[in-house]
Computed example of a mutant assay.
Amino acid sequence: LIVTTGSQQALDLIGKTMISPGDKVIVEAPTFLATIQCFRLYGANIIGAPIDADGVDVDQLEALIEEHQPKLVYLIPTFGNPSGATLSLARRKRILEIAARTKTLIVEDDPYGELYFDTPPPPSLLALSDGVPGSRDWLAHCGSFSKILSPGLRVGWLIAPPELLARATMCKQFSDAHTSNLTQAICAHYLTLNRLNPTLAVVRKTYAERARVMAESLRRELGDAIEFNQPQGGMFFWAQLTGAQGKPSNAAEFAKRAIDQGVAFVPGAPFYAHDPDLATLRLSFATADVAKIEEGVARLARAL
């Protein structure tokens, strides 16, 4: 592996080493906005694969891989940003089988996997790859301390096949020489104190409560004006405006009205590489306590 300045640098290094102008890259639709921006910077032709509550639709993903023969496939299998979706165990195994059969690089971005509320999610693609012959040769895994310890430390990592890792190491030397020794030492010392697991237990309980309150508040205050899946971990709600009874159906327009009420969210359109669903939006419960969540949703209701 290579230590990176946050997992965002890991994604940038993959873009630098793998993508040439015109190369095709498949991502989830929707997916992490910064990844779309990063891969486009290197000239990628980005193709969206649809998702549902169980993550990416593997049948359609397989068809897209066969049709486009992409340079890579980028996935957030666990508590996705922005979707909150978690890829099922069966779908994870199929994706690894497809990667090995088609010789397609799968990039697994896993910053949220430890932020489950009750039941742990299925094992990562990295963990499962030992059981799928040949798949490890076509898998890159990005991780980070940003969501589980401190965003400001900017310590992440990239695990990848040797050839890709060697190129990434060279590119990293050109950009920043190395990730801060001080922040690496802080993380290392924290881990040796065995503080991470107790901290994660508190974070999981806190986030679970905030997610529960947000769901209850949305149902109570917005009713049939909004639809969403209840997340089982992570930091986000992915919701869709219904337009019921003349209520808003365009998230960008609704965002302007919400700001007038003193509350903000992210409209969903930027999370799509193409053909955005204009009714979608992302809500985060990570940094707001229960009282602020209830007040924020009440302000959303006033913006309807």
Rank of each mutant, 00 (worst) to 15 (best):
K256N: 07
R302P: 01
R302D: 10
D110E: 13
Q232C: 04
A127K: 15
V213D: 01
I26H: 10
S150G: 01
G113S: 15
R212D: 15
A211V: 10
T192S: 15
R195P: 00
E97T: 14
P77E: 07
W238D: 02
D54E: 15
Q232R: 13
A298S: 15
A255C: 12
N194Q: 14
A239R: 01
S20P: 00
P151N: 15
I76G: 03
H178C: 07
S135W: 07
L165E: 14
D275W: 00
L200N: 13
P267K: 06
Q69K: 14
R94H: 08
A225F: 08
C171K: 09
A127I: 00
P70D: 05
A288T: 05
M235E: 07
L105V: 05
G243P: 06
K247L: 14
I47N: 06
A279W: 01
A273P: 12
I51L: 13
G143D: 02
L222E: 08
A127M: 11
S249E: 14
I159E: 14
S124V: 07
A140I: 05
E97R: 13
Q173P: 00
F39D: 01
A215D: 09
I259W: 06
M170I: 11
M235Q: 06
L125E: 09
A127H: 05
G55E: 11
F237M: 12
R219F: 00
E114V: 00
L165K: 13
P21I: 01
D23L: 05
L200P: 07
G246F: 06
G113Y: 04
A211Q: 10
L61R: 04
H178A: 14
D109R: 06
G246Q: 11
R204S: 06
E221I: 02
G262I: 10
Q69P: 00
A160T: 05
D12N: 06
I186V: 15
P123F: 10
L241N: 07
G15W: 04
D12F: 02
T280S: 15
D118N: 10
I259D: 12
N194Y: 09
E294L: 11
A99M: 04
N229L: 09
N181Q: 11
D57P: 04
S144W: 04
L64Q: 12
G268Y: 04
L115Y: 09
C38G: 02
W138R: 04
M235C: 10
A177I: 10
L191A: 14
S284C: 11
W138M: 07
T102I: 00
H178P: 00
T287I: 08
K71M: 12
F117E: 05
C38A: 14
D23V: 02
L126C: 01
V56D: 06
M235N: 09
A291T: 12
G80T: 02
Q37F: 00
T183Y: 11
G84F: 08
I51A: 00
A251D: 02
M18Y: 00
H141T: 13
R40T: 09
D110Y: 03
S135A: 15
A279M: 01
A44E: 09
L125Q: 05
L61M: 14
D110V: 13
I159L: 13
K172A: 15
V132T: 11
L281W: 03
M18T: 13
A269M: 08
S180I: 02
Q245W: 07
E253M: 04
